[in-house]
Design a protein around this nucleic acid. Sequence first.
DNA 1: GAGGGGATTCTTTTT
DNA 2: GAATCCCCTC
Length: 689
Amino acid sequence: MNYKSLTISLENIVREKETIENISRCVNESKSWFFDAGAGAGKTYALIQTLKLIIAQKSKILKKHNQKILCITYTNVAVNEIKERLGETTLIETTTIHDYVWKIIAPYQKQLVEIHCEKLSSEVSKMKNSLKTEGWAEKYRDLHKVDQLQLKQTMNERSSEYYRHKSDRAAEFKTVFADINSQYPNLLSNVGNFKKIVDNLLKIQRYENTVTKIGEEDSKFSKVKYDARFNDDRLEKMRISHDTLLDYTLKIVSENDLLKQIICDQFPFVLVDEYQDTSPLVIKTLSLVDEYAKKINHSFVVGYYGDIKQNIYENGVGSDFRTIHEGLKRVEKVFNRRCSPKIISVANGIRNDGLAQKSIYDNFPESNVEFYNIEIERQEFISAYIKKWNISNNNKLHCLELTNEKVAEQSGFSDIYNFFKNSKWYKMGTRFNLLRDHVLSLDENKLGILQKILFRILDFKYKLEYNSSMLLQIFKENHLKDVNIITLRRLIEKMQNLSGETLGEYVKNVFFNYKKGDDIYDKCIEYIVAEEIKSFEELRQFILNQLYYFSEEEENSDEGIQKNEQEVDEFFQISMKIFELWHNFITDTCPEKIVYHTYHGTKGREFDNVIIFMNSKFGRKPDYFGNLLKALPDKNEQQEDNTDLESARNLLYVAVTRATKNLCIVYLDNIENSIVPIQALFGKIKYEL
DNA sequence: GAGGGGATTCTTTTT
DNA sequence: GAATCCCCTC
């Protein structure tokens, strides 16, 4: 969208300025506020203006007291964006919540360990209580006390064997623990319940051990550690993860007045970006500091920036925000700088909190919003719209899908996605939710170990095709400075000549030249691929080990082995063209004129041409969007949504407001009795192209 | 045909 | 790790 050709009336310019003046007043009066504005209002812009404004007004005082402004965001991406837009400055500290909070509380190890001990004990009593009350533990309760103890002891001794076989089928599992099965046949009648019982028993044991070690002041248990790389607590190893970090922070701050004072004296101004995504624990912590600052008469001002209706993650505070941090001044902005008036009006209709945006521009060109209810192949529909909207490489079409699986399919590499999805490793337990990070992450570091190796091979190949300067980078990193131009040219040529229709052929060719007397080539390959892999066969084995034979001594039947190998060999048969599509996706360099995203993944972005593919079902909720469409006219009654309705509403709001110019919603299921509310919002429903 | 147990199947995202 | 489907047994 070319916004430069649009004009803004003097009146609107003045009114937009008033927003920032309201914030300015809050800064001067040391009054905390929250800035509420819908999608496309220019929230980040306002945040940056605020930072500049505080510096303009307060820099002398801040410098004098050696104080800073704290700017808290939810993601590292947002940190980088703000830093970039802000430029060099020493008075502002921009950081993610977790980084900041850990820096603050990490020195208080004595209290942290105390809190940690309490947490361990409370988890132990929770588990003990479950064993006493839960249905799945009934068979355990039927045992005599002596037998209960006996079981605990045996399973402790055989714990590594237990974990090795935990993912086995029920029948196999029973053979492994045949002795227990014959001793207490009832206990193993339901293998699932038995595993739950054993898990609890072992965990209780581990936690109690840790409590003892802490009590003995064992040096290995004297510190609580936070590691952002892990998503799960390992309480017994004194390691906590993201949520527990925030939990401990709230506890430690609420018990420690001195710490409250340190926080408010260090950073008398705190700005929180995207507050709706922030954990309630963080809001509570800030409100405690605010309260205490008032009590001791120190200045402490918090400014929250966000939009309740864009809360699409469960952990976010969302609409509870106002009851947790009370007494904030509300600053509102009704202007929209992004979307066409028609899209704005649809978006207003989806919201049910009374906020109604209007375009800041006088002359936004006419645009269309269309709602289809149609049973059609996506490709056919898209082809029609490529013509209708003049889609080209300079005017791309962005298609929004609900699931990553669909995005992978539409982007053309479902063969790759499904290979991982169907592999044993990803099918175990809750691992399927790692698929997204491991296979589709745009951040190379979040890819799975295996996917990362494949990615590096591909990335090298495609980068070399466009840009050979990256070879130099490799030599730099490997301290191979003495390579002359001729050697380099020869190497590039050798690399570029590597060919292969399928992944298997390509990889075989890559390794064909390996260790044939060309040192530079070898170094290059070693740099790209992990060091332990030096042939096609080793890569193949590595994949098998990663995805199928991951638990050391596990025995597989011959039949099983053959099946796994066949799947991996089929994976190697996948065309390099498909791997190129995958590579384009995760490097976000799709040269196609159509780009696919999940609704969630587009948050914060904007596109000229958007088609939203929608159906009723999402996750385990068969009527997720169906129910929302029925409920749309209730918006005027301002009634509270239930949780599902609210999250569907917010998600649709986010999706719709990505579009600046052309928006089309394609609903693929039956719309039954929600025709009236749909037409009221989107206009006449279209049933054919 | 009821109920017990096993197998299979799920969404998104960030730290 | 929970919901749901599926299969078996009584």
